[in-house]
Design a protein around this nucleic acid. Structure first.
Lengths: 395, 395
DNA sequence: GAAGATAATGTAAGTGTAAAAAAAAGTCAT
DNA sequence: ATGACTTTTTTTTACACTTACATTATCTTC
């Protein structure tokens, strides 16, 4: 029973500072007066606190707007160059490393293909470490300016100093990824499941914007989901929440690579779909093959949608989200052609508390969202704990 | 995106007061010194705040323990008679009203049978209002001493001033129960789904004690679940979370009274089980009939366990709880005979992140837990907002 | 059985927070 | 220029928690 803990006046200030910074980050440029209104803090406190933040160069002035009678308002915004975040997407076929500024503008990017079927940990770690150096050099950013590195990987990621990863499909069992990366870099590390990092990206910058309770579904080779409760990701007791891929959609049923039977992933995961359609291509061609199959139509695709709809409906019954976002490369392929059919199947399986069909939407960030979301983990940390200890590169 | 809001020094004190009171409530009698350790507050603040609470009679002294050298510690505890809570269980066959003190000791109880198949709202409301008067009189408690009335009902309960209830199985659609009760009493009202109030009871006082992330399943005529995240009940965007009864466990399948097909409730709800076994009795005899059926064994019961296991496994995949509690009258009947089988089916359907079998347990409060949990809603409010405005009966 | 040790609790002063009030700075209309 | 009005900054005030110290109460030792 995790209970709230005592707070001191110091915590109060830290918390209010985070509230202020957060509303400046998401509320675009704003004047002190607007900030006072949105945060509920008094004008005096806002003035005091923005003074600090300006001094630390965390925020900067962003022009002023004319007033109609009165002192013109000076707009403030988060300094996009106060720090940078690295996002890493470890996928089935590649390792992608990207550098973002605080505006989430991409500053540099590098990608390494994973050709072997086996995903050796050492190789992935080497790619990530090398990738960080490459994007920093390319982006002209020094390590001291980097607020952290976010990494999205398949499988279940335990929080904790080791960052243990369980990813059967990758052949990873209890891989201490965070600890391994720690040997190659001293930057703050944030490792999480790729479906969850994509979810974070869609939640902040994509189709999930503004939702307090949402589910963001990742459909790729595997299937995962991000459960958003009160604006933050729910991870469960052992960070294993949202394993939508292994929800059973039929008794018995196809064998899944997890060892179970009847898992959604065996039907609606990209490999499950292609396999059932009798198409066997290697990983790099899956995307093209799936797009063709969905485009031309097939009973297998219809069946996929039926199973997917059941899986989503079950999740809706348990979770009662206000919105469901479908993302991931396979999800986007499927959704672009057949979103209305998906909505219809879900509606057909939700009687007690139907979700408006418009609440099921496609992700708007494309398949690159995993790396973006990984970087967003870094920004999340920055916003809740802005410069508490660290003071990088006050340029 | 519900975001944290600004706080003032007043909120700080309120919050710390709630932390203190909560740890006193759940941490049994404790000395000021122990409180200082558990809450993290300084001894001075604890002393200051307990002084206030003693003055308001919210807490009382509870004897002292000998020291081995030094001033003996004075134990403090929440005053069980500071206030009282009424808990109401609106079930398919009865309306039960109970009065509890803050120690959750039952002080009085009254039950009204619902004989008609139709559950007229007016009748239920009349029973509740009358029941409150009866238990207060019987318990020798004045209305001013009552902190509130908690009501557990079937169906989905919207939070809000109206307390709209959607309970198709009851024939209630959009019944403003809270508003109707408000006409009969001026006591604070807390209306929630019965499965959720039972969940609250098991969480605080039963098999859920100490769990931060847990799922408490209610099996009765209908099926519901309480999802506990970080020690508090998760309600979802429209208070409809935890509708485990309408998760689909098979495609097509039996028609459910919700209008869908293949719902878990149609297989593992008491009526679903009896129906499939070809047993037709009226509501009052369902309990006996089900107990007999489970005792003697039947392929229908085996099948029920298979479906229930699938439903639980799906929930575990999505929520990743550390514990699953099975309660409700039908759940207790089923679980007492077949808990190990249920555990086995769940284990067989959870491969990616197996739950230890011991994490699935039976509820320990018996079938009366709905009313107890409803009263616990009142206590929950009291603990988070102790005497903020109200000051009843400072005896 | 008195003196000192030990421990819980209470009091006072100090620090740091946000709110409220007041002042200053800036703009437009007259 | 002057005044009305708005935004921002500064000053003052109230208050919550901590630290440091005082007080109270019991046990142990000589």
């Amino acid at each position: 029973m995790t209970r709230p803990v005592r707070r001191t006046v110091r915590d109060l200030r830290r918390g209010n500072r985070a509230v202020l910074l957060r509303s400046l980050y998401f509320g675009g440029p704003a004047s002190r007066n607007e900030l006072s209104a949105t945060t509920g803090l008094s004008a005096a406190t806002v003035s005091n606190m923005t003074g600090d933040l300006l001094g630390e160069n965390v925020i900067v002035e962003a022009g002023q707007v004319d007033s109609d009678g009165g002192r013109p308002r000076m707009l403030l915004r988060v300094n996009p160059e106060y720090g940078f975040a690295v996002g890493v997407d470890v996928g089935e076929t590649h390792v992608r490393v990207e550098l973002f500024d605080l505006d989430m503008k991409e500053r540099a990017k590098v990608e390494y293909a994973l050709r072997t079927a086996r995903h050796e940990v050492e190789l992935v770690v080497r790619h990530i470490i090398a990738g960080i150096d490459v994007v920093l050099a390319e982006g002209g950013v020094s390590a001291r300016q980097v607020l952290g590195v976010g990494v999205g990987v398949p499988g279940i990621v335990e929080s904790g100093p080791e960052g243990l990863v369980q990813a059967k499909t990758f052949g990873w069992e209890g891989v201490p990824l965070k600890a391994l990366l720690r040997e190659g870099t001293s930057l703050p590390l944030f490792v999480d499941n790729g479906a969850k990092t994509m979810g974070q990206a869609e939640l902040w910058f994509g189709s999930g914007r503004g939702a307090g309770n949402a589910v963001i579904v990742f459909l790729g080779s595997g299937i995962g989901a991000t459960l958003v409760t009160d604006g933050t990701t729910y991870r469960g007791a052992a960070s294993a929440a949202g394993e939508l891929g292994h929800v059973k959609v039929t008794i018995g049923g196809r064998a899944c690579r997890c060892g179970g039977r009847g898992c959604l992933e065996a039907y609606a995961g990209a490999e499950g779909i292609l396999d059932r359609a009798g198409i066997h291509v290697d990983a790099a061609d899956e995307e093209r093959a799936l797009a063709a199959l969905v485009k031309q139509g097939s009973p297998v695709v219809d069946e996929t949608i039926a199973y997917l709809g059941i899986g989503l409906a079950n999740m809706i019954h348990l979770f009662d989200p206000e919105r469901v976002v479908i993302g991931g490369w396979a999800g986007l392929i499927l959704g672009r052609e057949r979103l209305d059919d998906i909505r219809a199947v879900v509606a057909d399986n939700c009687h007690v508390h139907p979700l408006p069909p418009g609440a099921i939407v496609l992700g708007s960030l494309g398949p690159d969202a995993v790396a973006l979301g990984a970087a967003a983990l870094v920004v999340e940390d920055f916003l809740s704990d802005s410069g508490a200890a660290r003071t990088p590169a006050a340029v």
